[in-house]
Amino acid sequence: MPEKVVKICHTIMENDSFKSAAKDLLKLLSNTQKQKPNKPRILYININGHRNKAGGYDQEMYKLQMEYGRKFLIQFFEEIHFPLYSMKNVSYQNNDIPEKLKLEVNDEEE
């Protein structure tokens, strides 16, 4: 019988910054790992607002999806689903969740 998957759904609100959204996602991930250790996880993200004049995502939410999602978050999930793309992890899900987040924005730990 296949393992049950834990689905994590989160909406990033218009007043959330990149930093707050990234921290929220890490906290959701960490809490899920504590509650359902090592279970396969899938992340679903919605983003409210955060649009530029051309109708695309503002710089912060574009970076959150394209860089933070693809380069960092994917390792902790079987799949991630952002408004701009969906992606499957081609490796094993990493269950070693960091306690703090190091953001490249100013290279300080959060």
Rank of each mutant, 00 (worst) to 15 (best):
M1C: 05
M1Y: 06
P2H: 13
E3C: 01
E3T: 06
V5A: 03
V5N: 12
V5D: 11
K7Q: 11
T11S: 02
T11D: 09
T11G: 03
I12E: 04
N15T: 03
N15S: 14
N15G: 00
S17Y: 09
K19Q: 13
S20T: 15
S20C: 07
A21K: 03
A22G: 02
K23A: 04
K23F: 10
K23I: 07
D24P: 00
L25F: 05
L25T: 01
L25C: 08
K27G: 03
L29R: 10
L29F: 10
S30T: 14
N31K: 08
Q33P: 05
Q33D: 14
K34F: 12
K36V: 14
P37M: 12
P37R: 01
K39D: 12
K39Y: 12
K39Q: 15
P40D: 15
P40M: 10
R41P: 07
I42E: 15
L43N: 04
Y44M: 03
I45H: 03
N46Q: 14
I47M: 06
I47W: 10
I47P: 12
N48Q: 14
G49Q: 12
G49W: 10
G49I: 14
R51Y: 14
N52L: 01
K53D: 15
G55S: 12
Y57S: 03
Y57G: 04
D58P: 11
E60F: 11
E60T: 05
K63A: 09
K63Y: 15
M66H: 15
E67C: 09
G69E: 01
K71D: 13
F72T: 02
L73R: 03
F76T: 00
F77Y: 09
F77P: 07
E78T: 14
E78Y: 13
E79F: 03
E79V: 02
I80P: 07
I80M: 10
I80N: 03
H81V: 07
F82K: 00
F82V: 01
F82I: 04
P83S: 04
P83K: 01
L84Q: 13
Y85V: 00
S86F: 06
M87T: 00
N89I: 06
N89L: 00
V90C: 07
S91M: 07
S91W: 08
Y92Q: 09
Q93I: 06
N94V: 10
N94D: 13
N94H: 07
N94K: 08
N95S: 12
N95F: 13
N95Y: 15
D96N: 15
P98D: 06
K100R: 15
K100F: 12
L101R: 10
L103D: 12
E104Y: 14
V105T: 13
N106Y: 06
D107I: 05
E108R: 11
E108F: 11
E110M: 07
E110A: 11
